[in-house]
Amino acid sequence: MTEYNFAYLDEPTKKMIRRAILKGLAVPGYQVPFASREMPMPYGWGTGGVQVTAACLVPEDRLKVIDQGADDTTNAVSIRAFFARVAGVATTTRTREATLIQTRHRIPETPLSPDQILVYQVPIPEPLRFLEPRETETRRMHALEEYGLMHVKLYEDIARHGAIATSYAYPALVNGRHVLDPSPIPRFDNPKLESPAIQLFGAGREQRIYAIPPFTRVVSLDFEDHPFEASKAEGACALCGATTSYLDEIVADDAGTRRFQCSDTDYCAERRA
């Protein structure tokens, strides 16, 4: 352990990131620029989330890392191992036992508690980006609360598909002020953005941090005649039988047999235990 500072990053860097986090918590949904560091993994593998996690960890923490809800995928295993080595913190796969959870593309099914932190890995933090390519313009739009464009996107969905087809990274208005991109979580998870836990979002390549403080109002954007729906695949988990959790569709054998199972592996395992 002597070759690394605690949690890999040097203390001034962690201080800088903590400042960005505090500012993000103070202005919910606002994208705070920060000096993203090179990490020993490529962009797109969660460098933003890893830096936020590194800045938040204390030796007493118990870390859980999930990728698409699973603790046992490459990305999750690597990041968990990384922090076990450079911070020496305890790790777990149990949502209930974790003090800090880093996630890619899911919010755990098990309700979070006020003493937990959820850290999201974010590829593109700017919800307006796909319709307005200029960063100067999107920043001005946030500053002036000009969010008509967000509804244009949803309008286009309904016009083309008959319903709002945006199924992940579904934009939401935080604290009645800033529209944010909740990272590519399924829209099924959007209602869970109103949470007792602290939620932090890190985008390494884009150098942005934003946050949702506990118990903050988060409203998914919609139309009066096309209200937001937290949809999921119809069916039950083939392993635990759950009908209310978010399900992945899996090809089970060479014959192309398909079945559903919980994307949250810890939730599924706990139900079967």
């Binding site: 000009e146 969010y147 008509g148 464009l149 509804h151 244009v152 309008y155 309904i158 919609d222 139309f223 009066e224 005649d225 096309h226």
Partner: peptide
């Protein structure tokens, strides 16, 4: 529709 939505219109129909 963009200017309408920017002005707060929220009824798709």
């Amino acid at each position: 529709g963009e200017r309408l939505m920017a002005g707060g219109a929220r009824h798709y129909g």
